[in-house]
C-alpha cells in the first residue's frame, strides 16, 4: 500500500531548521531508499510563498497565502510504499518533523 506522509509543523515552534535537521532528513531519505519504501518526498518553501487558487464562475481567483488558517502548516511530504499501517507508522515516527509537529498518514487511493 502507498501512504502519503504529510508533515505539518508550526514554524514558530520548530527548532532552527539548521544543518542538523537537514542532515536528519537526508539520513531518513537514504534509509527509506535502501529499504525500498521511498516513492517520493520533498520539502516545501514556507507558507509565505504560498498562492491559493480557485475558480469561481469561470474566473480564476488567486490569493496570497495558504488556504487553511492553522498554526501548523504543510512543510513537506514523503510518499512511501509499505505492507501495512504499522510499517507506515514506523517510518512516519522517524520523520524529524514528528518530534515537534504532526505527521498525517493518508493511504493513497488505487483506481482500478
Amino acid at each position: 500500500m502507498q501512504y502519503m506522509a504529510l508533515i505539518y509543523t508550526d514554524p514558530a515552534k520548530a527548532p532552527e531548521m539548521g544543518e542538523k535537521m537537514n542532515g536528519e532528513y537526508f539520513e531518513l531519505t537514504k534509509r527509506m531508499r535502501e529499504a525500498g519504501v521511498m516513492r517520493a518526498g520533498d520539502a516545501l518553501h514556507p507558507v509565505s510563498s504560498a498562492t491559493s487558487v480557485r475558480v469561481r464562475g469561470g474566473k480564476v481567483e488567486t490569493m496570497d497565502g495558504p488556504f487553511a488558517e492553522t498554526k501548523e502548516h504543510l512543510g513537506g511530504y514523503y510518499l512511501i510504499d509499505c505492507a501495512d499501517l504499522d510499517e507506515a507508522i514506523k517510518w512516519a515516527a522517524q520523520i524529524p518533523g514528528a518530534q515537534f509537529g504532526t505527521v498525517e498518514l493518508r493511504p493513497v487511493v488505487v483506481f482500478r
Binding site: Y3, L85, D86, P107
Partner: peptide, 14 residues
C-alpha cells in the same frame, strides 16, 4: 480496510 490496519500480532518492538 482503507488505512491498511494489519491483521497481525504485533512484533516485539510494538
Amino acid at each position: 480496510a482503507t488505512a491498511g490496519i494489519p491483521f497481525a500480532i504485533p512484533g516485539p518492538e510494538l
